[in-house]
Simulated assay, not measured.
Amino acid sequence: MLPFSAIDSSLEKLSGENTLSLDFYKYLCQKIGNEDEVKVRRLTYIIDDLGISSTTVTEITSGSKGEGLQLKGSDLDLMFIDPSFKVYESESDFVPQSSKCILLLMKTEDTHPCFTQLHLVNNHDLTVDHGKRIKNSFLGRKLSSELYRLNCMEDITIVDGMMKIHGPCISTTTETIDTAWCLKCDKWISQAKPWIIRPRRTWPPLDLISKIISCGVLFVPIGYKGSSNEILQWRMSISVAEKCLIFAFNHTQLLCYALLKIMIKDIVEKQEDLKNLLCSYFVKTLMFWMLEESDPSIWRPDKIITCFMACLKRLNILCRIFNIIALFYSQ
């Protein structure tokens, strides 16, 4: 049994760490935003999305700003769901469309994981009632992600000539706004079903999982780099699910997430030998894993330093794995 002096010393040290964490938490709230400020930011973009979505097009604000963060250098990421198309994983899932919607079927046999080709259903005639932009995006009966992206860009340049291709997005030349036109499958696809049933502690809760499943999956116009049929591939996107999960973060978790993003932007990206090693998407995925595996009760203001250091430790392990993989493929 520890002597009382040792117990008193441990309690004093713990109390000091807790006080330091609380001070750090308050500082981060001043610099990154408190809970109320984050709620207002999110509500602002939600209202904006709803205003656009009252038309035929659905808008989804994503990225840091859509998540409620106003970080230095953050751009505005906008996703628009193209109402001209509806994607299905299987012919048995087809739902009769009252509108003149083009039905597309996923084909994943010749693609990398998380990518698919999109084919016209057998009975669809593309020569009838469809605009030039849509017709020119097909190669035979396959919808080309590259042609689709280029044709979308031509439509936008009528309004603003200062645009360029940036991955699956059409961006301003200053890269302050990224716009991605995407297609939607209303059902949760089979490739993502393991996420629903995999072992986890208490996060995310079952009601949130059900909500995410109901949102379906998006497809953004970009193929697997270097693939022989890259221009025909579309990347599966769960951006809506990710946004729902981040909205479920408590404020301590959100601040840890923001700190990791700041570290990538202001430290890692400025080191030439580390540049492009990590991206904000890795940080987002890291946070999801950390929350699934940890006790929710530890994520509180007086433990924020401990939580952040745990995130850094996990990130360090990931970096070592990436380096090992890179060495393996370079030999």
Rank of each mutant, 00 (worst) to 15 (best):
V128N: 05
E230Y: 03
K265N: 07
E17Y: 09
P96L: 08
F80R: 06
T44R: 12
A310Y: 12
C307D: 13
L318R: 11
S190T: 11
L104I: 06
S10A: 14
I304R: 00
I46C: 02
S228Q: 13
W203K: 01
I81T: 04
L103I: 12
D77E: 06
T179L: 15
S294Y: 03
L28A: 01
R320Q: 09
F4D: 14
P3N: 08
V57K: 01
A326L: 13
K13F: 05
L150W: 11
L120Q: 02
S137E: 04
C279H: 08
M162S: 15
L274H: 08
R201G: 11
D36M: 02
K243F: 09
L277F: 03
C256M: 02
S228E: 10
S137M: 06
L143N: 02
L208A: 02
T55R: 01
R133Y: 04
W181L: 11
S84D: 09
T252D: 01
G68A: 00
P96N: 07
Q70A: 11
T56L: 04
T111Y: 11
N316T: 14
Y329W: 12
G68H: 02
K13Y: 05
F24Q: 04
L318H: 08
Q253W: 07
L2R: 14
S9Y: 07
V159L: 13
L150R: 14
G140A: 08
S9D: 09
I305N: 06
Q30V: 13
I324K: 09
L206I: 12
L14H: 10
L20D: 15
M263G: 02
G167Q: 01
C29V: 02
H119L: 07
M162C: 07
C101A: 06
H251C: 08
N250I: 01
K187F: 10
A248Y: 11
L183H: 03
F219H: 06
L183A: 05
K303T: 13
D23N: 15
L291T: 00
S74G: 02
I7V: 12
L118D: 02
Y257G: 06
G16C: 06
Y224A: 13
E175L: 09
M290N: 03
L14C: 09
T111V: 11
I246R: 13
D93R: 09
L143D: 00
T56N: 05
W299S: 00
I102G: 09
Q97R: 13
L278N: 00
S5W: 04
R198Q: 10
L11F: 08
I324R: 11
P204E: 07
S21T: 05
G51K: 12
A180L: 11
